[in-house]
Amino acid sequence: MSVEPILTCRQLVKRYGRVTALDHCDFDLYPGEILAVIGDNGAGKSTLIKAICGAVIPDSGEIRLGGEVVSFSSPIAAREAGIETVYQTLALSPALSIADNMFLGREPRMPGFMGQWLRATDRGRMARFAREKLNELGLMTIQNIHQPVETLSGGQRQGVAVARAAAFAKRLVIMDEPTAALGVKESRRVLELILDVKKRGLPIILISHNMPHVFEVADRIHIHRLGRRLTVVDPKAVTMSDAVAMMTGAMAPPMQAEAA
């Protein structure tokens, strides 16, 4: 295979006291793909994801982003490297507007005197940018860019969080259980959003417990078990029940899986 992975993890180890959450774990993400990460509760998949997004610092092992070794000291460092995360809690500030939330922590200043000396944020640019990004993802059922996020439905909030990640991510997007809190119709909309983001060329790491959703959108499925990568499977070649069986240890992984 000639394509280089955009993100690789080699031999990641993370211990919490006597519990080993990551046990020499490997991980590969290729450009333009949706890689789902599945695993039973306590398998260590959230620790793996936290190591990638900077929320956890591994005890040993190596993370390479675009071929270069990186070590993130915080989620902010990972964000600056171009990795955006849509947290399960969404990390939106409910009382602030959609535009304010899109730019929270990286507000653009106005040009000239107002921005340089009076530190005024460029509210016009923020509103335009937010509207444009929501439009790109077909989310303009949201009428007013200045309405507080708490007035939006669960699906719309998810949409804002995804739009924010897609707008600022330069390398990849991590999505943690994006459909967990949503109804059937809203889940469908979010799955379409995920595919839209993929179409724009950004690779996505999708963590989900929802097997139908995983099998629908993922290009490859990373099965995590006992703190390490058990195997990577092709959703077209494996059934859902087989994936669940592997994830829970009821079935051994297929031998050729690494090539998937």
Binding site: P75, L90, A91, S93, L96, L104, G105, L118
Partner: peptide, 28 residues
Amino acid sequence: WYILTRTAYGRHVYATGDDPEAARLAGI
């Protein structure tokens, strides 16, 4: 009023009181 409504610092004051965890994840 200007600082609270027109500068990034002001927005961060609101965000910190609104949901500190979300504010931290946003890099504040």
